[in-house]
Amino acid sequence: MSECMLCQTRRAEHPYLIGSIGLRVYSVEELLYFIEHNIALLDETILNGDLVRWMKEELRMRRLAVNLSMVMQRKFSVREFVLPIFREVHYPDDETIRKIDEELKKAEEQPSAVRTKERGDALFRYGRYLLAIDAYRAAMEEMKDTGLGDSFRGILWHNIGCAHARLFQLEELVSCMEKSRDLLQTDEARDSWLFAVLLRDGSEGLAKTALASGIDGSVTRAVEKRAEELGTPERPADLEKFLIDEVRAYHRNTGM
């Protein structure tokens, strides 16, 4: 958006909470920005009566709230719900709104398993690892009657493994990477599994596993070299704060 744009609606006193990622929005423009950049996350947990009530009571967008209430009286798509909001506010600009419309149409045409997987990816990016795992597992259920085969399933196991890694759940990580390796049958998938074993068991464990699986020593050396190249993270200036933040994020993710 190159030009200034007058804000014709007020900011809310009480924000709307997007619970899946813990984001509070205070204005309709923030809501639209979130929608534009997180199409994969849009579902009934966000687009619902609470949102309509918030727009009516906090933002005083009464006419729009009435229109959306009418949309909600029948089965509706994400596109049918969000486009009226974009068109009411004209944010960010008409050209971008047309592109968003195209993206929404493409998303509707995708198999639901793919949409759910993308939802998992978005949750992963926001650090919501448990919710991401739930989404990936749901995608696995949804793919049963589709043409999506082993390669899609293999990617899902890989991503579930990555989410477990972020939660320091190394047993689950190794198990998922193993399943991914079996389905994808690629060198990258094999290396990801070996990397997981290195994390869990160290160099000795990696060597034992490679031997038992008939994997050449050059492969394991390459995996170890890649691990070294990652380097050691810098110690945070405020270590205590860093640890507190990490623990909080962990509890938020796991509900523990």
């Binding site: 958006m1 190159s2 030009e3 200034c4 744009m5 007058l6 804000c7 900011r11 423009e29 944010y91």
Partner: peptide, 25 residues
Amino acid sequence: YYPLITGGSHWYNTTCDCEFLLGSK
């Protein structure tokens, strides 16, 4: 063109308050 201050009124009575989103500059 969005008017902020409209001439013809007294300076001591003239104020403007608004909010807008900044463009790229």
